[in-house]
Nucleic acid binder design. Structure first.
Length: 763
RNA sequence: GGGUGCAUAGCUCAGUGGUAGAGCGCUUCGUUCACAUCGAAGAGGUCGAAGGUUCGAUCCCUUCUGCACCCACCA
């Protein structure tokens, strides 16, 4: 049956995907050879596929398909993440629209709504991934809130606790009064804002602040020990100062963290509401006083301002200070940074709270060692430096959150003890509620930081902690077979949030790294270099692109733009269009080969294209091994379009071996398959193969010899003739006489030059 | 304050210690039956600036400038 002139992706893609799925080839075949394993970074169930996913998924699918064709047992394990904070916010917004709060409807009803919502949206992103053609093992699909995963998270928490890494501590944390929860350092966005900077008289000192509302409790003034201006004041000496609500006794503290060049070089501290001040207070064992409540309103210590929000209180405080003559100066043009919760968008108010922390001091060393020794290897290598730098400076990790969605802490409290002064000895950390020993144990109301759960992804998805649970009798378990995984493919923005935590969690619980390599791919930006975002209107819908151009086109277009060392891809739809055109070119090469009558008289052109093919196999293979996807795509593009289409096939129309041509084309389909799986599979089938291209063997390069000069000579003659025709404006229909002394491929030469060969005049 | 990446044709970007490359766009020509999602010919670049190493630098080194991003407890 003749093929259409143009390849129509919509006509073939769904059927091809179905065929792949039904073949069972997405599931790894057990074998003795080393498996190749990738864990899909679980996308948030709340989201839809964006172009960054399309890029990342294509990279993983290229790797997976390549390794599958190499004959390795290949596992790409998919899954989704509950993204508790984001979902929590979505649900609260929905409730707000109904004029309700989560507290009003209660925890049970809230979680019921969450389940309903997950059920509705959970499959969406998976369907979208399938349209891209990804070859995940769907039989192993996991979800961070499925029953077994919850068990793994509980087990990890209990184990961390038993091994002494988890502790309950009173520390300064990022509190979001709007969402009523703590937030990770890594999930804060800093926005610069202009705010008045006040210089205030504090006893004999002048101190600066942009946050006068925190100043009520100030009773320490801090300066650098070497600051000559304050030599006469001794560390620890006290003095009386008139302050906002009356006289206070203040103490002088000398601390090296103070920058003498900033302002007056002296400052008062608010340990309860500032991390730096907290550190100073800890060093010198100073008192800490809460000024702002968890609802964001000032506490009774603020006197007349108690109960007011920060914005309401500020002018009053300044008025009071002015009245007392304590306001020395105001800089209206001061720029400072304000911390926002990047999920909930509330303004962060640091607070001292009793929270769960993971002690990083030992865990970080293990991860650092793994990076230093390259038992986890970063690609490109510069990310190793970033990774290590972050770990070297990491703080203990606050792991509980005060929202309702997510993994609830496996911590059980005696009634009425949680959050009181007398917590010690009144809780039990265990997966199951404590049996006996009194009734009414209450489970801790908090849930875990979402990254605590995803840190376990590489092994919890394989069945941990049931280490030896075999899938079938006598066979090794998934955990034994597939851990550690081969490579993690991810974006740089979660290098710390997620990658680092997987590394130390894997080392801790599995005794080995979770992946041998980490490939950090570029970020996809809008064409003009801005971030892709819905609010900027710069986002691109990959599904729309798939509908317009086909999955193969978007895959190839993305890979073609993926250059090894760049941090960003400026997304240009033209590249996708170009991918579509390339796919169509392949399709038409298939058509042409069908139409040329069989003939087996090899020429130097056949010899030449075979050599070029081998060089191409070598280059593409090497590029894939090095994660140089853009390079591989370019090599393929140039080979197909320049060598195969423009020269070899034009010659083949006139003379040469269709047998060689078909061999070259078959090898080409294999090389292209990871990049454009659908069209290559269709052509494979149309060429009469009954097996799947997906599981065909990756081509191996024969001996690569230098390309024959004879063809270069041929190309020279043709090009020269064409240039001459253009120069003299000879219409295509006019056949010219061409006199050459030695004519390689005479028939092809005549055809491509639109010439009649005549004997060269002998001198 | 520290760090990373980038700077090459009008645009988006490859690339190499030795006469500069692609795609798109542009100019001219062409639908002979693989493909107009195509083919042929062509125009277009002191490879960000300044120094240095070298027989020779767009490439290696130093400094600078501009852009983007990351980290950081700027009161």
């Amino acid at each position: 049956m003749p093929l259409d002139k143009q390849y129509d992706p919509a006509q073939f893609e769904p059927a091809i995907y179905k065929k792949w799925e039904e073949s069972g080839a997405f599931t790894p075949r057990h074998a003795d050879t080393k498996p190749y394993v990738i864990m899909l970074p679980p996308p948030n169930i709340t989201g839809t596929l964006h172009i960054g996913h399309a890029l990342q998924d294509t990279i993983m699918d290229v790797l997976i398909r390549y390794h599958r064709m190499l004959g390795q047992p290949t596992l790409w394990l998919p899954g989704t993440d509950s993204a508790a904070i984001a979902t929590n916010r979505v649900l609260e917004e929905q409730l707000a629209a109904e004029g309700k709060t989560r507290q009003q409807i209660g925890r049970e009803e809230f979680l019921r709504r969450a389940d309903a919502w997950y059920a509705k949206t959970g499959q969406e992103i998976i369907q979208q991934m399938k349209r891209l053609g990804v070859s995940c093992d769907w039989s192993r699909l996991r979800y961070t809130l499925d029953e077994a995963y919850i068990q793994a998270v509980n087990q990890a928490f209990v184990e961390f606790y038993k091994r002494g890494y988890l502790y309950r501590g009173e520390r300064i944390v990022n509190w979001d009064p709007a969402s009523q929860t703590t937030v990770s350092d890594l999930e804060i966005d800093w926005h610069t804002e202009k705010a008045p900077f006040y210089t205030l008289q504090y006893g004999p000192f002048q101190i600066g602040t942009a946050r006068p509302e925190t100043k009520f409790g100030d009773k320490y003034v801090v300066m650098h020990p070497a600051d000559a201006r304050y030599q006469q004041y001794q560390h620890g000496e006290t003095f009386e100062a008139e302050w906002i609500n009356g006289p206070v006794t203040a103490t002088v503290i000398k601390d090296e963290s103070i920058d003498p060049a900033f302002g007056t070089g002296a400052m008062t501290i608010t340990p309860w509401h500032d991390a730096a001040d907290f550190a100073i207070a800890e060093r010198h064992n100073l008192d800490k006083q809460q000024i702002i409540g968890f609802d964001g309103k000032l506490l009774p210590i603020a006197g007349a301002c108690a109960g007011l929000t920060i914005n309401e209180a500020r002018p009053k405080i300044i008025e009071q200070l002015t009245k007392k003559g304590l306001l020395v100066a105001v800089d209206e043009n001061y720029q400072h940074s304000v911390a926002l919760n990047n999920r909930g968008k509330g303004v962060i108010e640091p607070q001292v709270m009793r929270q769960w922390f993971v002690d990083m001091s030992q865990l970080k060393d293990k991860a650092l060692q793994a990076a230093a020794q390259e038992s986890v290897r970063f690609v490109p290598t510069r990310w190793k430096k970033h990774f290590m730098h972050w770990l070297e400076n990491v703080y203990d990790w606050n792991v509980n959150r005060q929202i309702w969605l997510g993994h609830r802490l496996p911590v059980w409290w005696k009634p009425g003890t949680h959050g009181t002064e007398h917590e010690e000895g009144n809780f039990v950390v265990s997966v199951d509620p404590p049996a006996g020993g009194g009734e009414g144990w209450e489970q801790d109301p908090d849930v875990l930081d979402t990254w605590f759960a995803t840190a376990l992804w590489p092994f919890a998805t394989l069945g941990w902690p049931r280490k030896s649970a075999a899938r079938s009798r006598g066979k090794p378990s998934d955990l034994e077979l597939f851990y550690p995984t081969s490579v993690l493919v991810t974006a740089r923005d979660i290098l710390y949030l997620w990658v680092a935590r997987m590394v130390f969690s894997g080392l801790e619980f599995m005794g080995d790294v979770p992946f041998r390599e980490v490939f950090i791919h570029p970020t996809v930006l809008a064409k003009d270099g801005r971030r892709m975002s819905k609010s900027l209107g710069t986002g691109v819908d990959p599904l729309g692109l798939i509908t317009t151009y086909g999955a193969d086109a978007i895959r190839f277009g993305l890979m073609y733009q993926l250059h090894y060392d760049s941090q960003a891809i400026k997304f240009d739809e033209e590249a996708i269009k170009s991918g579509r055109n390339f796919v169509n070119k392949i399709w038409n090469i298939g058509r042409l080969l069908e139409s040329i009558p069989k003939r087996d008289t090899p020429t130097i052109a056949d010899q030449w294209i075979t050599q070029r093919l081998h060089a191409t196999i070598q280059q593409v293979t090497q590029s894939l091994e090095q994660y140089r996807f853009g390079e591989a795509a370019h090599v393929l593009y140039d080979f197909v379009w320049r060598d195969v289409a423009d020269w070899y096939l034009e010659i083949l129309k006139v003379e040469g071996s269709t047998t060689v041509a078909r061999q070259v084309f078959a090898a080409l389909l294999r090389l292209l398959h990871p990049f454009m799986p659908h069209v290559t599979e269709v052509l494979w089938e149309k060429s009469g193969r009954s097996d799947l291209l997906m599981t065909a063997a990756w081509p191996t390069a024969g001996k690569v010899e230098a390309a024959t000069d004879a063809l270069a000579h041929f190309q020279d003659i043709v090009s020269t003739t064409r240039r001459a025709r253009a120069l003299f404006d000879i219409p295509p229909k006019v056949v010219v006489d061409l006199a050459v002394t030695a004519a390689p491929l005479p028939q092809a030469l005549a055809a491509l030059s639109r010439a009649r060969l005549v004997p060269a005049a002998t001198a």
